[in-house]
Design a protein around this nucleic acid. Structure first.
Lengths: 141, 141
DNA sequence: TCTGTTTTTAAAATCATTCTAAACTGTTGA
DNA sequence: TCAACAGTTTAGAATGATTTTAAAAACAGA
């Protein structure tokens, strides 16, 4: 971690490596996203956070940025509910618990679930990735 | 299979067992859904099909029916893309290939993927189900 | 058949997300 | 340093899937 005094240097580096212009709003959002460990955020949550940090960023830019970050591999979009997108700052191989009542998403380390035999993908296709979502709730069995 | 002449008897039975009133539109939709093997449909697709079969069913009823059927376990909702819901007539334990370019969803038999060690669910929660989505595309590796 | 409850419906409303076109900012080269 | 252009941000409108509304229609039991 190299945040040697200059608060935006880490975010700046991340953007530079990704080939994205270091604009004011991208730098600010990158800080929120990547300087607090692994996170799962929706666009609305990120907007609330940036407002709380008194950054002026439009919702359109939040969406643009989340999508761009996903495209360059800085984020991973996790689809658990119709009509709401989560973005995960952990892009390494791993899976999720999804708490249906609260909407909470939790990482499961890649090696904590072992997927055995993966069947042959349909002809002409390549496996892009495997998503495993373990849906949990508070019901008594 | 007991479709002894009376075309709606199977659909009627399904609704009766589920405790849902056998209305004209529920019977018609149940026929479309359950008398053609395993299927994955969206609300719009089902609407198009019912129109093609010259049934008069509003889109609101299609949505109501798909949700009710899911609640009573006749259908399983599969979430693969933000902003579009698929309903699967196969409610047994199984998983899916999802073809990102075409939106095509294909079943993977439950025993064709072996999930090894499932980690302990978070305290106070029970595993509701495990969804595995194998995302495939046409890209050359 | 009558009556009360459920269901269906068209239309409006909602919600997350994307688009638009104009204003603004970052970068490059003179 | 500054002009000039491409890339970015923005407010607001637009979109698209889904849900809600409130009223009309259909179903079930007596």
């Amino acid at each position: 971690m190299d945040s040697s005094g200059r608060p935006y240097s880490k975010a700046f580096e991340i953007l530079r490596k990704a080939g994205l212009r270091p604009t004011r709003q991208r730098l600010g959002l990158a800080r929120l996203l990547f300087e607090n460990g692994d996170r799962h955020v929706t666009a609305e949550q990120l907007q609330a956070e940036s407002a709380a940090a008194s950054m002026r960023v439009s919702l359109a830019t939040i969406y643009n940025t989340l999508n761009q970050f996903s495209q360059v591999g800085l984020l991973r979009e996790v689809v658990v509910e119709p009509g709401r997108s989560y973005f995960d700052t952990n892009t390494s191989d791993h899976h999720h618990f999804f708490h249906e009542e609260t909407g909470l998403l939790q990482d499961i380390a890649g090696d904590a679930i072992s997927v055995g035999a993966i069947p042959q993908p349909p002809a002409g296709t390549t496996v892009e990735r495997i998503d495993i979502i373990v849906r949990v709730n508070n019901k008594v069995k």
